[in-house]
């Protein structure tokens, strides 16, 4: 028995309304705003020296953070799902912890460590290093915030996979590397890809934590989200939305890849 047709229609229309007003309109708004003053202004905003430096820095931070977090994610998922050990639940909670910590607090923690008056402050200045208000600080903060993403996607996939296929590979004489490459990786590739994409999206877009540790030095430690904030505060709305539209495009691509992956895994399990 299905519910009354009227209720069904009402629910569907409420959903349409909600999605359109809450998600679709804001998304379209970004692109409209970005192109409001014409393509020339749009291109100028993107090709501006400071914008380009912000894009470069964001890409650099992402290129460092994502591979490291991916390595971590695979390691953590492997240890947690294929072995039994004490304190597994605790480890899982610790991995999820960055989700429950405000990005602002994440940034604060690294300030407490590395600022000149911080715990490691004197050591760092003695060596002539700069971490806070510099690229390493931004990388550290981003790593903290994006730490759980890959592990979180992989753990359920590997858990569902079980151990038998890997045991079979070993029993047939494969070494650890062959087992991983030929058996584990093909089984987890979609989950891994999705985790990497989510991790990248967050790394590109992280604002609060980065905002604290970067010091917002224009042309030096400004990432894309920090750059649009500055533009916005200077009432350069078209330019702010132009840079924002680049990141939104990335977000839309992320969603497309996600839908595509889900479609693939769905059809391949059938």
């Amino acid at each position: 028995m299905r519910e009354h047709k009227g209720i069904k229609l009402a629910l569907i229309f409420t959903m349409y309304g909600y999605i359109i007003l809450f998600l679709l309109v804001p998304l379209l708004f970004i692109f409209t705003k970005a192109l409001e003053q014409g393509v020339a202004v749009y291109l100028a905003a993107i090709l501006d020296e400071e914008a380009r430096s912000a894009i470069r820095l964001t890409l650099l931070v992402t290129a460092i953070t994502v591979p490291l977090n991916t390595l971590f994610g695979i390691s953590a998922a492997w240890a947690i799902t294929k072995f039994d050990f004490k304190g597994k639940q605790l480890l899982l909670s610790l991995i999820e912890l960055p989700f429950a910590v405000s990005p602002v607090i994440a940034g604060l923690m690294f300030i407490l460590f590395f600022s000149p008056s911080g715990v490691l402050g004197t050591v760092i200045t003695d060596f002539g290093l700069r971490i806070i208000f510099s690229v390493p600080g931004i990388v550290l903060a981003t790593m903290f915030v994006t730490l759980p993403f890959v592990a979180r996607e992989l753990i359920p996939v590997m858990e569902a996979q079980g151990r038998a296929e890997e045991e079979a590979a070993i029993s047939l004489g494969a070494n650890g590397f062959q087992m991983f490459k030929r058996v584990t990786l093909p089984a987890i590739k979609w989950g891994l890809l999705y985790g990497v994409i989510l991790c990248s999206a967050r790394a590109v877009g992280e604002f609060g934590a980065v905002s604290i540790v970067s010091g917002r030095i224009r042309g030096m430690t400004n990432t894309m989200p920090l750059h649009i904030e500055i533009l916005y505060n200077e009432y350069q709305f078209a330019a702010a939305f132009a840079v924002a539209s680049l990141m939104s495009l990335l977000a839309v691509i992320t969603l497309f890849i996600k839908v595509w992956i889900e479609h693939r895994t769905h059809t391949s399990t059938r």
């Binding site: 998600l23 804001p26 998304l27 708004f29 970004i30 705003k33 989510l198 999206a201 967050r202 590109v204 877009g205 992280e206 604002f207 609060g208 894309m224 989200p225 920090l226 649009i228 904030e229 916005y232 702010a240 939305f241 924002a244 990141m247 939104s248 990335l250 977000a251 839309v252 992320t254 969603l255």
Partner: peptide
């Protein structure tokens, strides 16, 4: 979308 879109972009929009 809210997971994929940078929070600053969302806030500004």
């Amino acid at each position: 979308l809210p997971f994929a879109l940078p929070t600053a972009v969302a806030g500004m929009t």
